[in-house]
Design a binder for these strands. Structure first.
Lengths: 225, 225
DNA sequence: ATAAGTGTTAACAACTTGTTAAACTTAATT
DNA sequence: AATTAAGTTTAACAAGTTGTTAACACTTAT
């Protein structure tokens, strides 16, 4: 299934060009030319990514984004802005995963941004329930079950475990984990992460084929043999 | 070690302001006011990112970028352009990882771009893997594998090996290696480098067609026959 | 022949990580 | 409003890893 993109752009010419280009790149693009139409589309369907022009006729991109968030806290939103009303608002909004692009931009640039953006968020998403060795993680009750018993994880324990699981094929840099879960990266957050790794190892100790391996000075990798 | 940025901007006032701002953000900025100076700096040291004004007195930003690429095919370059000569040329250049920013821009915006940019390239970098003779280097787990076994390298060992590999067609000056990996160049760092070369040779000894050759008084070159 | 540059090893200092426990924060309950 | 409880962060210390330095042997250039 292809990636669904909601594109909101009031200039019909530009909107068409962008949609056309992205469609050729195999994205499934829905184009809306005003805020209300976009609102309906968003609450009607589900999208992997939204591209919002900040300056729209009735409802501006920011308030639109705000209402999107009430349905889905995680949709990545890429704002399109003209020079001028840039950062103050954008950085203020900054719902974590969002990004922006300044007009005029090339299609190539837009395409790059989208790719980077989707990769970034897909890393975080991934499966919500999964089996890991002889354990079973249920993303709904955020609990780990095993013959030996069931342990309900805390929110953060679950986030760390999910992130590790969704990247079990590679080494996650400490910085990546911290930015992704703690939102920032300082010495104490780093120590906090170590505490969580320590806890997770304890929870997972009944299956020695599961190892959270440290790469000194780099980060961690979940290995399941 | 902080991120090294080469900033090329002919307007001394603007150049100073940008440098000053970025310096406060903990970047290590080298400012050049013309193309020739920039060229020297680039071939003398090594940078994590270049910010090039497109309109420069003698040599314009694009041809400068082209010559930068002859030394290093991977440096991310952020072009600064004035309104007008934007996309056609830029998209034409399109060396993959490059980006551009339109004047006038705010420091905040520049800062955002740099961050996104560096994050993008650092994610790609980590995954650098290559085969070297009968060895395989995995940039993710920073390990060297061979029939004879697997050796996980340290961060610095991996950095030195990667640098050598990426420049296997030429002699790397000691100074270049030191500035690039140690960030500076003094007697003891030089001795430290020798220790690392020694270690790498030991790790690579099972394939005699791989040689780290010393060029007396100059530097090293990785040769794979 | 001499001085400067390089190869190698090993000891030590600096830093990173693992772990436990105490301190703090927040939200719910009495 | 005070008490409890759960979750997270900070502190402390032990253990492990890495980078630098010093020392000495060897090589290259003058």
């Amino acid at each position: 299934m292809s990636t669904k993109i909601l594109l909101v752009e009031d200039d019909p010419g530009l909107g068409f060009v962008i949609k056309d280009n992205l469609t050729h790149k195999q994205y499934d693009v829905t184009l809306c030319t005003d805020g209300e139409e976009a609102h309906r589309a968003f609450f009607d369907q589900s999208f992997d990514l939204c591209i919002l022009d900040v300056m729209l006729p009735k409802k501006d991109g920011f308030s639109l984004a705000q209402s999107f968030r009430s349905k889905n806290k995680n949709v990545p939103i890429l704002f399109v802005t003209a020079k001028g009303l840039i950062e103050d608002k954008i950085t203020g909004f900054e719902s974590g995963g969002d990004d922006y692009i300044v007009k005029p931009f090339s299609m190539e640039e837009l395409y790059c941004r989208i790719e980077v953006f989707l990769r970034r968020t897909s890393i975080q998403e991934g499966a919500t329930s999964f089996s890991i060795g002889s354990y079973q993680f249920d993303g709904n009750s955020i609990s780990l079950s095993h013959d030996k018993g069931l342990k309900t994880l805390t929110q953060k324990e679950a986030e760390v475990l999910k992130l590790l699981y969704n990247n079990k094929d590679r080494v996650l840099k400490r910085e990546e984990i911290l930015k992704s879960i703690w939102g920032d990266d300082d010495y104490f957050m780093g120590r906090s992460l170590d505490v969580f790794i320590s806890k997770l190892r304890k929870y997972l100790k009944y299956d020695p084929s599961i190892q959270i391996v440290n790469y000194h000075g780099v980060g961690f990798r979940l290995e399941i043999r």
